[in-house]
Design a protein around this nucleic acid. Structure first.
Length: 804
RNA sequence: GGGCAAGUGGUGGAAUGGCAUACACGAUAGACUUAAAAUCUAUUGACCGUAAGGUUGUGAGGGUUCAACUCCCUCCUUGCCCACCA
């Protein structure tokens, strides 16, 4: 008979909550902080949440049973635009809508049986939380890390707000995919670039992070070392700086190219017969969107300006061109072109018949790629590999790697240029022209300028009934009582900042807040954070590999500089779980292939859902949803339950030995997040029990090992076996290494690498004895046929390979 | 274009130099049943063979090794991230 999961799951969820089984507080015991990325409260949990939180839950419960003091909190990343949209649609207020969603979501999370310490719940939209966003902002302002500047910012007209560089994906808005425009605005920025070197260097400390996340962050920070070279405009000797990482090719620079927006272009073409034509070209390029400009199959277009510049290393005059493939926002907005050693320059030069010169030759014949080109005419593509300098003055004959250093030093000495480092990382734009976010705590005064709100006036509360319509513009600007305030400095007429903070600000430090969620003197209690932090295990989606993780690392470094914490990195170990797929595709509303967790819980129970998700694939790989696999998980639980009705007085010694092996395997597997093989081992254990019958001790160990995975199910059995208290207060079984030692072993006998026999041998058999037994073996005789052995290889306790 | 993963039965996956396909799903057969479901038992990579057994087999090709899914080289395919980045 099937077990009654509905009754059982409800019963134990209530019990865990009432008894506060998973409540944690600072103690002398070793701590373990297990954190899953908190959700945006959309109102419904999806399979991605279920997978993420199940992984964290299993690990937390396992750590509890290993004797750790576990911090396993949950909260809600509750500010953000969807609440505004939903509120307009449903004619309610973002505040009410969000809190309703949080309530629904909590019900669903509780139905999954997750072991959270709900006493630590935080929601970022509560003033008790965002007050500290404002506090952090003011501290950053004090330290010169928050500043306001006017510039062209990424603007999404459909969301009517600005976007950080990190929020622009392929030229579109990360949320609505609308084309992003540039708009000149005065906005607040955080100087994350002050930490760029630390953010890059400390990636080396993160040995327990996935390689690809490290790679993505490295890429995003984008450090590149090179030389800024001073070309000079021939007509008036003005400097045109260009940046290159390949200074070894400087003697092959046969023209330079400016971005169409480059300020010097207008000067160069002034009173020049080509002026009209060039302006026409610039206008044309300006109309193209960035998306079109970067699409790789489009031909690079450019035009000669009529001007010339002088290459400082050889005083050669080179033509100045303007082309669409040079971007004003990277480097200096101007490049030197070396057609022989850069593929893009090569194609451009061929197209426009520009001169080229070879300056690096592969070291033939050592270089396989390298037939040396005798003239540029025979080149069909640029040579971008390593080699030796030619046509490069006093640097001829050097390897290009060596030349890179020597030329850079020589240029710097002669003031032809300057060794420089370029970074891709830009300061973080945090102003948003939205309602549902943290108000930026600044007041503008005609006399005093931008004045920070004094700490004792925090929080700057978000007015509950702003008249927002979704039409854009800062809705807070329409709330008179909010905007019209006195200047805190001179008492004169002031005007409050009406932009709110980007929501990534909220999630950049929530892991610290969880250490002391009620603390009301500072963002977190320094002592408690000292005990709990850093997060030992962080679990979440790969989609946060750049934004959220980079910002959180930045905030952590800031708090360290404030002296509030004493570690460099917030997350010791990071696990990025794979997506949940259905029919090979990511589950999504638009594809209509969503499986609702709630309906699965209703039909099979949370334990079955948890078991299936963990068994179907390792946590980091994609998981293909499979109804039949779910059915299999359900059958397994019933199979376990049946054992209980058939317990023996004493289990066989053989089964006890099997048990100890399984304990070792399951412990090792769970420790390293191999839940799928841990479950496979438990299934093997169950199969073995079906063969020989378990006693209560063996069965209890099975139940304890299964309990992190199927907690309600195991808690029920634990209780029905007459145990007191929660199974999660029980300790994890230990294996007896003595029982793992075998006296005999099955050895595989190979002849020429092919398996020809298997022999049962004592583990301590001597090699001579082995040989004797092998030669006697009838099965092997046809293969050996009295031929002499070339080799007789023995891998102790495993295998023998005879080579004849 | 650059970087990082990955490619194994009908399916999800296991094995990190030493028995390829653990565990499960599915399928087939049997037991139980009036019958079905559930459950239990057995078989299940392909090919040849009545069988014993043999051959072959981890995207393709080469290499190292007594021994390669695993290490090295070349290539193909898929996924993800970045990208006219100078």
């Amino acid at each position: 008979m099937d077990y009654n999961f509905k009754e059982i799951e409800k019963k134990w969820q209530d019990y865990w909550q009432k008894e506060k089984v998973f409540k944690s507080s600072v103690s002398d015991a070793p701590k373990f902080y297990c954190l899953e990325m908190f959700p945006y409260p959309s109102g419904k949990i999806h399979m991605g949440h279920v997978r993420n939180y199940t992984i964290g839950d299993v690990y937390s419960r396992y750590k509890w049973m290993q004797g750790f003091n576990v911090l396993h909190p949950m909260g809600f990343d509750a500010f953000g635009q969807p609440a505004e949209n939903a509120a307009i649609k449903n004619k309610t207020k973002p505040d009410e809508w969000t809190h309703k969603c949080i309530d629904w979501m909590k019900i669903e999370l509780k139905k999954m049986g997750f072991s959270y310490d709900w006493d630590r719940e935080v929601s970022t939209c509560d003033s008790g939380y965002y007050k500290w966003n404002q506090w952090i902002f003011l501290k950053m302002l004090e330290k010169g890390l928050a500043y306001k500047k006017a510039s062209d910012v990424n603007w999404c007209s459909s969301c009517a707000t600005t976007l950080a560089n990190e929020e622009v994906i392929e030229g579109g808005c990360w949320r609505c995919h609308n084309k992003v425009e540039l708009k000149e605005l005065e906005q607040w920025y955080l100087k994350i670039t002050d930490y760029k070197q630390h953010l890059l260097d400390d990636l080396k400390l993160l040995n327990d992070w996935p390689q690809r996340v490290i790679a993505m962050q490295t890429n995003w920070i984008g450090k590149s070392q090179g030389v800024e070279i001073y070309f000079r405009l021939k007509s008036n000797n003005q400097i045109i700086p260009v940046f290159t990482t390949r200074v070894d090719t400087i003697f092959g620079a046969t023209y330079i190219v400016l971005a169409p927006e480059h300020p010097l272009v207008k000067e160069i073409i002034k009173d020049n017969p080509r002026e009209k034509e060039v302006l026409k070209f610039i206008e044309k390029v300006g109309k193209e969107t960035k998306v079109v400009r970067i699409s790789s199959d489009i031909k690079k277009e450019g035009i000669f300006t009529g001007g010339y510049a002088t290459n400082p290393v050889n005083n050669e005059d080179v033509p100045i061109w303007v082309a669409d493939y040079v971007l004003m926002e990277y480097g200096t907005g101007a490049i030197m072109a070396v057609p022989t050693h850069d593929q893009r320059d090569f194609l451009f030069a061929k197209e426009h018949n520009l001169p080229m010169r070879i300056v690096i030759q592969p070291a033939a014949p050592a270089c396989p790629a390298g037939r040396q080109a005798q003239s540029t005419d025979e080149m069909t593509e640029a040579y971008v590999g390593e080699g030796f300098q030619v046509n490069s003055g006093q640097f001829n004959g050097l390897s290009n790697q060596e030349a890179k250093i020597k030329i850079a030093e020589w240029m710097e000495k002669n003031k032809y240029g300057q060794i420089q480092t370029h970074w891709r990382l830009r300061d973080w734009l945090i102003s948003r022209q939205r309602y549902w976010g943290t108000p930026i705590p600044v007041i503008y005064c005609k006399k005093c300028g931008a004045v920070p709100v004094p700490y004792h006036d925090l929080p700057v509360e978000l007015p509950k009934d702003a008249p927002f319509t979704g039409e854009g513009g800062s809705p807070l600007g329409k709330v008179k009582e909010f905007v019209e305030v006195k200047c805190p400095e001179c008492g004169g007429t002031g005007r409050r900042e009406t932009d709110t903070m980007a929501t990534f600000f909220d999630s950049s430090w929530y892991f610290l807040r969880f250490c002391s969620p009620e603390f009301n003197k500072e963002p977190f209690n320094v002592q408690e954070a000292k005990y709990w932090m850093p997060v030992d295990q962080y679990i979440g989606g790969i989609e946060h590999a750049i934004l959220h993780l980079l910002y959180s690392r930045f905030f952590t470094k800031f708090f360290k500089d404030l002296g509030m914490i004493d570690f460099n990195e917030p997350f010791k170990h990071l696990l990025t779980q794979g997506m949940v797929l259905k029919d090979g595709e990511v589950m999504s509303k638009s594809k209509g292939n969503i499986v609702d967790p709630d309906s699965i819980i209703d039909k099979y129970g949370a334990d079955t859902l948890r078991l299936f998700m963990l068994f179907a694939a390792p946590p980091e790989t994609e998981l293909e949803w499979d109804d039949r696999g779910l059915e299999g998980a359900y059958k397994f639980l019933n199979r376990v339950l049946r054992i209980k009705n058939d317990l023996k007085d004493k289990a066989d010694h053989g089964l006890v030995k099997v048990m100890h092996k399984i304990i070792k395997k399951v412990t090792d597997d769970i420790e390293s997040f191999k839940f799928n093989t841990a479950i496979a081992s438990l299934m093997e254990f169950v199969n073995a029990i079906y063969q020989s019958g378990a006693d209560e001790r063996v069965f209890t160990n099975l139940i304890i090992m299964l309990s992190p995975i199927a907690p309600h199910f195991c808690e029920e059995i634990w209780q029905s076996l007459g145990n007191n208290g929660s199974i999660f207060k029980a300790s994890w079984p230990k294996y007896d290494p003595g029982l793992l030692v075998e006296t005999t072993v099955t050895m595989v006998i190979q002849v020429n690498g092919k398996v020809r026999a298997r022999l049962e041998m004592p583990t301590d058999v001597s090699e001579d004895k082995l040989r004797e037994m092998v030669l006697k073996e009838e099965k092997l005789k046809p293969w050996l046929q009295n031929k002499p052995f070339n080799n007789f290889i023995v891998v102790p306790r495993k295998l023998i390979n005879i080579v004849v």
